[in-house]
């Protein structure tokens, strides 16, 4: 049905059609953009300094001055919530930057080279995969000490194997394809072949997987914060804010509920985004 494919429509119109047909992508992207905006412009958006303690105004209910009330140290919860988006998103960013490249590289190498390299790389992957993810991360942070970067390292350490497996399976399938045979025949080899030719074909599914994983990473990051293994106090972070709030949860429930709600919404946003991306990048839609 080549007659169908020769009818071109402009890219802008294509994007508009796609977005209008995928409400989940639009909603997810909007949520993530708002959170991102909050994180970047926190100093201008936040009404108070997030670490400013006003002991006279401890545990206040939402009011005109403090829209979401104050916590046990009299700090403004709205301000902490806005600033709290920063370590959360930063952590997610670090995890993504560490885990996806490592996993994809290992997977591509294993899938393309095959033989002994593949067997050893995939056994290592299996071993890491067999550990319970959060437990290994907690142990890592317990040894290395809490902090943003260590938390990110810990989560990345345990989440790359899924990418390696997926990339390996796709690369192994591609290794038999005419694309790569043709590239090899004209003398393209080594890193140029792996990263110039294999990577672009492996990347779309990795990106979708990443978006799906992000909501899990948000939750894991909050979990680390909740257990006091993330950023150090008094820096605002959603997970540790929930932890602080639990001490007074029966009297001042909103202190724990507001950061909890922020975690929920962000995680939900990433999920919607992933869902929409999957529809968008599915090759059957090309």
């Amino acid at each position: 049905m080549s007659a169908l494919t020769t009818l071109q429509i402009s890219p802008a119109r294509w994007l508009y059609l796609r977005l209008s047909r995928s409400p989940s992508l639009t909603t997810g992207a909007a949520i993530i953009l708002i959170v991102l905006f909050m994180a970047i412009f926190a100093p201008w958006l936040a009404p108070y300094d997030p670490t400013l303690q006003e002991t006279a105004n401890r545990l206040m209910a939402p009011s005109q001055q403090h829209w979401l009330g104050t916590d046990a140290f009299g700090r403004d919860i709205l301000s902490r919530l806005i600033y709290g988006a920063r370590p959360t998103l930063l952590l997610v960013l670090f995890v993504v930057l560490l885990m996806a490249p490592v996993g994809i590289t290992i997977g591509i190498l294993a899938g393309y080279l095959g033989g002994f390299v593949e067997r050893s790389l995939m056994r290592i992957t299996d071993i890491v995969m067999s550990f319970p993810r959060l437990l290994l991360a907690f142990a890592f942070v317990a040894i290395m000490g809490p902090g943003l970067l260590n938390g990110a390292l810990a989560l990345a350490l345990t989440s790359w194997p899924a990418y390696a497996r997926q990339a390996r399976a796709e690369t192994a399938k591609l290794a038999k394809s005419d694309y790569l045979a043709a590239a090899e025949m004209v003398g393209i080899k080594g890193p140029r072949l792996l990263f110039g030719h294999v990577l672009p074909l492996v990347l779309p599914s990795a990106v979708i997987r990443l978006a799906l994983d992000l909501s899990g990473i948000i939750l894991a990051a909050a979990g680390l914060g909740f257990l006091g293994l993330g950023v150090r106090p008094p820096t605002a972070e959603w997970g540790s804010m929930v932890a602080d709030g639990t001490q007074v949860i029966f009297d001042q429930w909103w202190i724990a509920a507001t950061p909890g709600f922020a975690i929920l919404i962000t995680s939900f946003g990433f999920n919607l985004l992933a869902d929409g991306l999957r529809d968008l990048m599915d090759p059957r839609n090309d």
Partner: peptide, 11 residues
Amino acid sequence: SFPSDNGPVPV
């Protein structure tokens, strides 16, 4: 015919 930016195209 199929729709396009420049109106329907008869095939």
